[in-house]
């Protein structure tokens, strides 16, 4: 369990994170989402005590990360920036970290196996591909068998196999009851991995919600109906029991219906003998929802945006 309370970080006179409060609960994957420069990495560094917040504070399992007697068993972290000596082998890198907590060699070998690095464990990290480096970072994060796992953009630079592997790993970690916080600037990736979402922009909280709720809020689900008798169907649809139902004409024979599901529309049409050429449920694109949410807080906006 991670709790952030009014976290604020200023670098010089730039406020990079502002009054950020949220709670990350165990048992689910929580996505930490925001456009480039939103302050995700800065927030995660504050959670780990690497950067001191200008104001506010954060706790892991009820106390500041740095005050835990065995911090690696509380939080395992993969940071955005490379955090290792390229001249050291993967095994020795992990072993050096393990020694601080009295973690035995067997556990180091276990996490090397878990991340598929056993065969390259003796090689210097310098020669590792991006994906292998990322796997080593995850091995380091899992070293202390931590109750909470924090990963900053873990899929960066991974091939589709690697992405799938991370996705599966995160879900299994959450299923084991761990707290999983994973940052990304890709909504599409988070939609497949995360259940809960914390969205920030320009250092401020934009949304603390679930993936499904976000879709609903961002325009919700609608149904596209194509029929030669559009006007007749429009009059027949049972809008009165559904006050938030809305019907808009998108063309002479095309309707967009919100607030009614495809089944209700189909039944009505069948009951009155209205021929349907198309009946398509449409969910608002998550990517679009994310862009709508963060549009006003883009740090680096393309000229054409």
């Amino acid at each position: 369990m991670i709790r952030a309370e009014e976290l604020t970080k200023r670098y010089g006179d730039r406020t990079v994170v502002q009054d950020l409060s949220f709670t990350v609960r165990p048992g689910t994957v929580t996505g930490f989402l925001g456009p480039n420069g939103a302050g995700k990495s800065t927030t995660l560094r504050m959670l780990l005590g690497l950067d001191a917040p200008t104001r506010g504070h954060s706790t892991v399992a009820g106390r500041a990360y740095a005050t835990h007697p065995a911090p690696l068993t509380q939080v395992g972290a993969l940071l955005e920036a490379r955090s290792l000596h390229p001249g050291r082998s993967a095994f020795h890198h992990l072993m050096a970290l393990a020694h601080t907590h009295g973690i035995p060699r067997a556990r180091v070998e276990h996490v090397l196996g878990l991340t598929g690095l056993t065969d390259v464990a003796g090689r210097r990290v310098k020669g590792f591909s991006l994906g292998m480096g990322q796997r080593l970072g995850i091995a380091a994060a899992l070293l202390g068998d931590p109750a909470t796992v924090v990963l900053d953009e873990p899929v960066n630079g991974l091939d589709p196999d690697g992405v799938l592997w991370i996705r599966t790993l995160l879900k299994s970690l959450a299923a084991e009851g761990r707290t999983v916080l994973v940052s990304s600037h890709l909504m599409s990736e988070m939609a497949l991995t995360a259940d809960h979402l914390i969205v920030i922009g320009k250092g401020r909280l934009l949304a603390d919600t679930t993936v499904s709720a976000l879709v609903r809020e961002a325009g919700g689900a609608s149904v596209r109906v194509v029929t030669p008798e559009a006007d007749r169907l429009r009059a027949l649809l049972p809008t009165s029991p559904h006050p938030d139902a809305q019907i808009t004409a998108e063309g002479p024979d095309t309707l967009r219906v919100t607030g009614l599901d495809a089944a209700a529309i189909g039944h009505t049409a069948a009951a009155h003998g209205v021929p349907l050429h198309e009946l398509t449920p449409q969910t608002a694109s998550l990517e679009q929802a994310f862009m709508d949410l963060t549009h006003d807080s883009l740090e680096y906006q393309g000229a054409a945006a």
């Binding site: 065995a70 911090p71 050096a96 020694h99 907590h101 973690i103 556990r107 878990l114 202390g144 084991e176």
Partner: peptide, 28 residues
């Protein structure tokens, strides 16, 4: 693949001590 395949030592034994930090720096 799962992270809970039996871990060799009970997590409770993991703890930072000055001697362990020395050991870590020696290893590094």
């Amino acid at each position: 693949m799962s992270a809970t395949t039996p871990v060799p030592a009970p997590t409770a034994a993991y703890r930072i001590t000055p001697a362990r930090v020395l050991r870590s720096e020696w290893h590094k």
